[in-house]
C-alpha cells in the first residue's frame, strides 16, 4: 500500500495535491489532536492508578481550618465521631497537633510555630475496601456457582461503567456543542461544510453502551478465570 505513494510525476499531476488547503487536513488534524490528548490522558491516569492507586483511593485527609484552638479541637472531635459511625470508613485517625507542626516546619522554619499560631487540624481517614476476590471465595465455599458470582460482578461493573459513561458523555457533549459553536462562528471557507451531523449524537451515545458491554465481558472473564483456579 505504501508503494502507492511512489507515483511517477506525470501521474501525480492528474489530481492536484493541496498544501493544507481545503477542510480535510484540518478536520483530520483536529481529530488526531483530540485523539492523542485523550490517549495521553488515559495513559497518564492508568499509570497514576497503577502506581499509587489503591492507597490514594482508600485514604483522604480532612482539614479543619479554625483559628480558635478550642473550637478547632471540638470540631475535630465531632468530625472524628461522625466518621467513625460510617460503615464505609475503616479507620479514623486524628493527627496530633505536634505532628502537624512538624509537617509545617520545613516551610515555616523551626521554632516559628508556637501554640498561638493557628494550624489546621487534620484527620486521616481510611476507607474500607471491598475485597472482590474474598467475596467471590466466600460465595464459592457456600455453593455459589461460577455464573452466580460472575453475574453479580458483571452487574456491579456494568453500573460503574454506565455511570462513568453517562458522565463522560455529558462532558463530551458540552465540549462538542461549545467547540461546534466556535467553528460555526469561524470565517466561512476554512471549515465550510464541517459540522457535526445529527446522527452523530446517536453514534456517540452508543459508545458508553459499548464500553459498558466490554466492561461486563471483561468482568465476567476475570471472575470466571479466578474461580476456575479454585476447586
Amino acid at each position: 500500500m505504501l508503494l502507492d505513494f511512489a507515483l511517477p510525476a506525470h501521474d501525480r499531476k492528474l489530481i492536484p495535491e493541496g498544501r493544507l488547503s481545503g477542510p480535510m487536513p484540518w478536520v483530520i488534524a483536529i481529530m488526531l489532536f483530540l485523539t492523542l490528548l485523550v490517549a495521553a490522558g488515559g495513559l497518564t491516569l492508568a499509570e497514576a492508578a497503577r502506581q499509587g492507586g489503591q492507597d490514594f483511593a482508600r485514604q483522604v485527609t480532612v482539614q479543619i481550618i479554625e483559628s480558635d484552638p478550642a473550637q478547632r479541637a471540638a470540631q475535630r472531635a465531632a468530625v472524628t465521631r461522625t466518621l467513625r459511625k460510617l460503615d464505609s470508613i475503616a479507620e479514623v485517625k486524628p493527627v496530633p497537633d505536634a505532628q502537624v507542626r512538624a509537617l509545617l516546619e520545613p516551610w515555616l522554619g523551626t521554632g516559628v510555630i508556637d501554640a498561638d499560631v493557628p494550624v489546621p487540624a487534620l484527620v486521616d481517614v481510611r476507607f474500607a475496601s471491598v475485597p472482590t476476590a474474598e467475596t467471590i471465595e466466600i460465595m464459592h465455599m457456600m455453593g455459589g456457582t461460577d455464573i452466580q458470582a460472575a453475574r453479580l460482578f458483571q452487574r456491579r461493573v456494568a453500573l460503574d461503567a454506565l455511570l462513568g459513561g453517562i458522565v463522560g458523555f455529558i462532558v463530551a457533549a458540552f465540549v462538542i456543542i461549545t467547540v461546534g459553536g466556535r467553528f460555526a462562528a469561524v470565517e466561512p471557507g476554512l471549515l465550510s461544510g464541517a459540522h457535526f451531523p445529527y446522527y452523530g449524537w446517536a453514534v456517540l451515545a452508543l459508545i458508553p453502551l459499548a464500553v459498558m458491554a466490554l466492561a461486563m465481558l471483561m468482568a465476567r472473564m476475570t471472575v470466571i478465570s479466578a474461580l476456575k483456579r479454585m476447586l
Binding site: D87, E137, M141
Partner: peptide
C-alpha cells in the same frame, strides 16, 4: 471458618 470470613461490605 476460624477467621469467620464475613463479607465486609
Amino acid at each position: 471458618f476460624q477467621d469467620f470470613r464475613l463479607v465486609p461490605h
